[in-house]
Simulated scan of single mutants.
Amino acid sequence: MPDRNHEFGKFGARGVKGYEAAARQLDNLVEFIATPVTQRRGMLARLNYLTRTEHAKAAARAAGLTVTDRTLKRWADGKAAPSRKSLAQLEGAYRQVRRQNVARHLLQRLNQDGRGTRVEFHPLNQSQVSRPHVREVSFRTLNVRHWDRMVEAWAAGDDEAMDDAWFSDITADLGSDYGAYEYVMNIGFAA
């Protein structure tokens, strides 16, 4: 079996990269601020999260928030409104800082002192694939005990490292069938 799919979807299969589905599930576990950044309440909540301490401000700067402290204060006081570009920058910095802040706690919950977390692999959708090209892939469950590299890459927003962790740490325990789960419809786990 080849290590990676080179022409995924050529025969009509549908799905997302496994690490993307896992990252989406990790995002669901984090509990980000629900109010959108485009509403004043959501913007103020993110500003408060990113500016309440000097450490939080430094993390926000490192995450790409480039506006000045004066501008942040004007936004908070309602004397100025951020542009769409600034709102996107604020949202990106908030998500990255929030991931970094909860990564250690999330890692403890997922590893559970070596017991790990049960993961459900929902296979890719092959309903549009012609019969001769259909691959036998079924729903699988696996207890994943090593989340360290995956959570570290997720917190850093490093897609390449997440993809590597997906293959070497998560799906490797599926045996010789691991390559069939490079693309999936969904990944399910809770912590």
Results as ranks from 00 to 15, higher is better:
residue 123 P to F: 04
residue 110 L to K: 02
residue 71 T to C: 02
residue 136 E to Y: 12
residue 125 N to R: 10
residue 142 L to R: 14
residue 130 S to Q: 14
residue 105 H to C: 03
residue 77 D to M: 10
residue 57 K to L: 13
residue 143 N to T: 15
residue 37 V to K: 01
residue 14 R to I: 15
residue 129 V to S: 03
residue 70 R to F: 08
residue 131 R to H: 12
residue 55 H to R: 08
residue 116 G to Q: 10
residue 64 G to M: 06
residue 15 G to W: 02
residue 71 T to M: 10
residue 113 D to P: 11
residue 86 S to M: 00
residue 72 L to P: 08
residue 120 E to M: 13
residue 21 A to E: 00
residue 57 K to M: 10
residue 122 H to G: 05
residue 134 V to C: 04
residue 65 L to D: 04
residue 117 T to P: 01
residue 57 K to I: 10
residue 28 N to M: 14
residue 90 L to I: 04
residue 124 L to E: 14
residue 111 N to C: 08
residue 33 I to M: 03
residue 110 L to C: 06
residue 54 E to I: 01
residue 85 K to Y: 11
residue 118 R to H: 09
residue 43 M to F: 04
residue 105 H to P: 05
residue 98 R to F: 01
residue 101 N to H: 13
residue 101 N to C: 01
residue 108 Q to N: 15
residue 72 L to D: 06
residue 121 F to L: 15
residue 69 D to T: 00
residue 53 T to Q: 10
residue 33 I to D: 05
residue 72 L to W: 02
residue 148 D to Q: 11
residue 118 R to I: 07
residue 118 R to P: 05
residue 112 Q to W: 00
residue 120 E to L: 13
residue 111 N to T: 14
residue 141 T to R: 07
residue 87 L to C: 08
residue 104 R to F: 12
residue 108 Q to G: 15
residue 42 G to Q: 09
residue 142 L to M: 11
residue 48 N to L: 12
residue 104 R to Y: 10
residue 80 A to I: 04
residue 92 G to A: 06
residue 16 V to Q: 11
residue 81 A to Y: 12
residue 110 L to V: 07
residue 128 Q to V: 12
residue 42 G to N: 09
residue 107 L to G: 09
residue 20 E to H: 13
residue 37 V to S: 09
residue 129 V to N: 00
residue 84 R to H: 12
residue 21 A to D: 01
residue 89 Q to S: 07
residue 115 R to F: 11
residue 150 M to L: 12
residue 108 Q to K: 14
residue 89 Q to K: 07
residue 114 G to I: 07
residue 138 S to M: 08
residue 107 L to H: 04
residue 62 A to H: 09
residue 108 Q to P: 14
residue 37 V to E: 08
residue 128 Q to S: 10
residue 58 A to E: 08
residue 72 L to S: 04
residue 80 A to W: 05
residue 50 L to C: 01
residue 25 Q to K: 14
residue 129 V to T: 05
residue 90 L to G: 01
residue 41 R to L: 02
residue 71 T to F: 06
residue 96 Q to C: 03
residue 133 H to W: 13
residue 62 A to Q: 08
residue 88 A to F: 09
residue 66 T to A: 10
residue 76 A to D: 11
residue 26 L to Q: 06
residue 143 N to D: 09
residue 145 R to G: 15
residue 130 S to L: 13
residue 13 A to F: 05
residue 54 E to N: 14
residue 131 R to G: 05
residue 75 W to F: 06
residue 120 E to F: 06
residue 28 N to F: 11
residue 69 D to I: 00
residue 84 R to T: 03
residue 96 Q to N: 09
residue 129 V to L: 06
residue 95 R to V: 00
residue 30 V to F: 08
residue 46 R to I: 05
residue 52 R to V: 00
residue 30 V to D: 03
residue 44 L to F: 10
residue 128 Q to M: 14
residue 147 W to S: 10
residue 137 V to K: 07
residue 131 R to Q: 14
residue 109 R to H: 00
residue 76 A to E: 13
residue 130 S to P: 08
residue 34 A to I: 02
residue 97 V to S: 02
residue 65 L to V: 03
residue 133 H to S: 07
residue 51 T to K: 01
residue 117 T to F: 05
